[in-house]
C-alpha cells in the first residue's frame, strides 16, 4: 500500500511538471507574439496608421521614410523563384527514392539527403557568392547580386529538405495500391502520374508549404547574394532586399530607442502573418495536426 501511495504521488507530480513545461512554452510563444505586436502597433500609430507604410516603396531612414512594400514584394518574388526551381528537382528525387531506387540506393539517398539538409544556410550563401553571383554576372550582365541569385541559392538549400519530405510522403502510398493499379493494366508511368502522385497530393502540399516557410524565413543565405538594394525594383537580375535581410541590416542602423525601431517589429509581424497563413493552408484537409 505504501508503494502505491508513493506511485500515485509521483504520478501526480510528473503530470504537473509536464503541464508546467507546456505552460512555459505556451507563455513563451504568447510573449513573443505580444512583444512584436506591441512594437508594430506603436510604430504604426506613430505613422498615423497610413496604409502607405505597407504598400509604398519609399524606404529612406535618414529622411524618415519607412515604407516596406518593396521588401514584401521581394520576399514573395524570391520565395516563388526558389520554389519554382526546387519543385521539379525535389519531386524527381522523391520519385526516384520512393519508387525507382533499389534498397541500398534508397538507404544511401536518405542518409545523403539528411546530411545535406543539415548543411548550414550560411554555407549555401558562401557558395552563392563563389558560384551563382559571378555566373549570373557573366551570363546576364549587371551586378550578379540579384533576386534570381537569392532564389537559386534558396532552391539549392531547400532541395534536400523538400526532397526528403516528399520522399516520405510518396513512401506512404500502400504497396497494395500500386499492385492493384498495375494489375488493372496501368503502365508504371500511368501508375505514377494518375495514382501515386495524385493520392499523395495533400502530403506533397504540406511538404511544399514547409519548404515555402523555410524560404520565406531564411536570412543569411539570401542576404549574402541579394545585394541589399532598397531603392526601387530592378528586375529579376537586379538587386533587392527581403523582409528578413532588411531586419538584419537595419538592426544596426535603427538601434533600440530609435523612434523607427518599431518598423523591424512590423516587418517581423508581416513575416509571421504570412507564415501563419501558410500553416493554416497546410493543415487544411490534413487530418494529422
Amino acid at each position: 500500500m505504501e508503494r502505491q501511495a508513493l506511485n500515485g504521488w509521483i504520478e501526480r507530480w510528473q503530470a504537473r511538471l509536464l503541464w508546467a513545461a507546456t505552460l512555459l512554452v505556451a507563455m513563451l510563444v504568447l510573449a513573443i507574439t505580444l512583444v512584436l505586436a506591441v512594437g508594430a502597433t506603436r510604430f504604426l500609430q506613430s505613422r498615423g496608421w497610413r496604409l502607405g507604410v505597407l504598400l509604398g516603396a519609399n524606404w529612406n531612414p535618414l529622411a524618415g521614410h519607412f515604407e516596406i512594400g518593396l521588401f514584401i514584394v521581394d520576399t514573395i518574388i524570391v520565395t516563388a523563384l526558389a520554389m519554382a526551381m526546387t519543385l521539379p528537382f525535389g519531386l524527381g528525387v522523391a520519385v526516384f527514392g520512393a519508387y525507382v531506387a533499389s534498397s541500398w540506393e534508397r538507404t544511401a539517398l536518405r542518409w545523403l539527403l539528411t546530411v545535406l539538409a543539415a548543411v548550414p544556410s550560411v554555407a549555401m550563401g558562401w557558395w552563392g557568392l563563389a558560384v551563382v553571383v559571378p555566373g549570373l554576372r557573366r551570363i546576364g550582365g549587371g551586378p550578379g547580386f540579384s533576386l534570381l541569385a537569392a532564389g537559386a541559392v534558396l532552391a539549392v538549400m531547400l532541395l534536400p529538405t523538400f526532397g526528403l519530405l516528399a520522399l516520405e510522403v510518396l513512401d506512404k502510398v500502400p504497396e497494395d495500391w500500386h499492385q492493384a493499379s498495375l494489375a488493372l493494366g496501368a503502365s508504371e508511368d500511368q501508375n505514377l502520374l494518375q495514382m501515386a502522385l495524385r493520392v499523395s497530393l495533400p502530403g506533397l502540399k504540406t511538404a511544399f508549404l514547409t519548404a515555402v516557410a523555410r524560404a520565406m524565413g531564411e536570412t543569411v543565405a539570401v542576404q549574402m547574394v541579394i545585394g541589399g538594394a532598397v531603392y526601387g525594383f530592378h528586375g529579376m537580375l537586379g538587386p533587392g532586399a527581403t523582409l528578413t535581410t532588411q531586419i538584419l541590416t537595419d538592426m544596426a542602423i535603427l538601434p533600440l530607442g530609435h523612434p523607427a525601431h518599431g518598423v523591424l517589429d512590423l516587418m517581423a509581424v508581416i513575416l509571421l502573418a504570412g507564415l501563419t497563413l501558410l500553416t493554416i493552408w497546410a493543415q487544411r484537409g490534413d487530418e494529422r495536426p
Binding site: 512583444v35 520565406m216 538592426m251 523591424l264 517581423a268 509571421l272 507564415l275
Partner: peptide, 10 residues
C-alpha cells in the same frame, strides 16, 4: 518555422 532572425530580434 519562425524565422531565426525574428527570434534574434526578440
Amino acid at each position: 518555422s519562425i524565422p531565426a532572425i525574428v527570434v534574434g530580434l526578440i
